[in-house]
């Protein structure tokens, strides 16, 4: 692994450790928030410790983003194959619709069917996160140069091999950029899960909004922002692993 890349992973590891330490030191949070908001009777949300809340949040994002990736990438691949090309406009429209549909509205509609808690939240987040992934998968695969594909076919590579050895590696950075956007959006949007009891960092924020307690809001928002930054770094590093250009390789 090149030195510059090693350094980026090292930096990320240090940041993750620092973040974990930060969120596990509740007394530090309490002291700081008490200092900032002396008028509040409580400065920490009583439901759970930050460590638990962050854990719930990560679980929420991991499940929904994981589903978005597992469905989005194959969907994007399928509509760029000869067999699925007819569905390309429909899939683009539907995923765009999923994106424009507010997640809160999805929640409201999903609760009667899926009940409260994790399931409807995951469903709403999954729909919301699908578009960037599908769209970037389509964009990445369509951008593979035609001459490269012709050469691959002309040398006798079969369809599957062409996809796995040529198209996906060449589209990887664009696809992963879509994943990155999707996950970051998801970390922010996952806050709404707290409304229907899915937990996560939304809990102190919603409580803070309801009880007009600024300390609660900061307790939830700050770790969420840091989490988004870390996730962004992690996915950026993964992107770089797949980047093939000679500059990044040497």
């Amino acid at each position: 692994m090149p030195k510059a890349q090693m350094r980026r992973w090292l930096l990320l590891a240090i940041l993750v450790v620092a973040f974990t330490v930060l969120i596990s030191r509740m007394e530090l949070w309490e002291a700081t928030l008490r200092f900032l908001f002396p008028q509040e009777s409580r400065v920490l949300h009583p439901r759970a410790s930050l460590l638990v809340l962050v854990g719930e949040h990560i679980r929420l994002v991991a499940i929904s983003s994981g589903l978005s990736i597992l469905c989005g990438i194959p969907l994007g691949i399928w509509v760029t194959r000869p067999g699925g090309r007819n569905f390309l406009p429909i899939v683009t429209d539907l995923t765009s619709f999923g994106q424009t549909f507010p997640p809160v509205a999805v929640l409201a509609l999903a609760v009667p069917m899926l009940g409260f808690g994790l399931l409807p939240t995951v469903f709403a987040l999954f729909l919301y996160g699908l578009l960037p992934i599908v769209r970037n998968t389509i964009a990445g695969l369509s951008a593979v140069p035609a001459d490269v594909l012709e050469a691959a076919a002309g040398m006798g590579m079969g369809r599957a091999r062409r996809l796995l050895r040529v198209e996906i590696p060449l589209a990887a950075t664009v696809i992963l950029a879509g994943v990155r956007i999707s996950v970051i959006i998801n970390i922010g949007t996952a806050m709404i899960g707290a409304v229907i009891g899915a937990g996560g960092l939304g809990s102190p924020i919603i409580a803070g909004l309801v009880q007009d307690n600024l300390a609660y809001i900061i307790e939830g928002a700050l770790p969420a922002a840091l989490l988004a930054v870390l996730a962004d770094q992690l996915l950026a590093n993964i992107e770089r692993v797949f980047a093939y250009s000679a500059e990044t390789l040497t």
Partner: peptide, 20 residues
């Protein structure tokens, strides 16, 4: 087709080398 093409060398103007 795959078998056929593997037994025939193919070179094109734009070359189409795999950039990765």
């Amino acid at each position: 087709p795959e078998r056929l093409r593997q037994s025939i060398g193919y070179a094109i103007q734009s070359v189409g080398l795999f950039p990765h």
